[in-house]
């Protein structure tokens, strides 16, 4: 049994692109942001110039509830690089607003994960200078 915690080592860190700066600024401010379409109301992630639902370009940033359910998961035992502590548990989370994102699970034992697990975002300020979203089980 291993309590899952954020990866604090020398892991590869995100380099924001022109489209994703508002997303990473949101993380630093403790907000999980996604794009909402002003035309059809649909939610889009990852950061885009086109609405995933109607191809409108009228997207505005919105703050997510941060809550969702595990859509799929894997437990990694062979790390991508030696900087990652194993095991770690990447998830696809289906957010309440209907969009999906990828992040790792924390705050529970590694074998507590299952499809449908209710989770909520938390943020970890990596010493490398960027704040990353993780998910823990909803209590």
């Amino acid at each position: 049994m291993t309590l899952l915690t954020p990866q604090a080592g020398d892991i590869p860190l995100p380099v924001p692109g022109a489209l994703s700066v508002p997303y990473w600024e949101g993380c630093a401010a403790g907000e999980l942001r996604f794009q909402r379409c002003s035309d059809c109301g649909g939610a889009t992630h990852t950061p885009a110039v086109l609405c995933a639902h109607c191809t409108s370009t009228d997207l505005v940033w919105e703050v997510s509830s941060g809550r969702g359910e595990v859509y799929s998961w894997t437990t990694i035992w062979r790390p991508a690089t030696p900087a990652f502590e194993v095991p770690y548990v990447p998830l696809i989370v289906e957010m309440e607003e209907g969009w999906h994102m990828l992040a790792d699970l924390v705050g529970c034992e590694h074998d507590a994960v299952h499809v449908g697990l209710a989770v909520e975002v938390e943020f970890f300020a990596h010493p490398g200078g960027i704040t990353l979203p993780y998910f823990h089980p909803r209590r």
């Binding site: 994703s20 990473w24 990447p90 990828l102 790792d104």
Partner: peptide, 12 residues
């Protein structure tokens, strides 16, 4: 930027 920090690689 949306996968590397989570230790993703092809197997995952």
């Amino acid at each position: 930027e949306f996968v590397a920090a989570y230790g993703m690689y092809t197997a995952g």
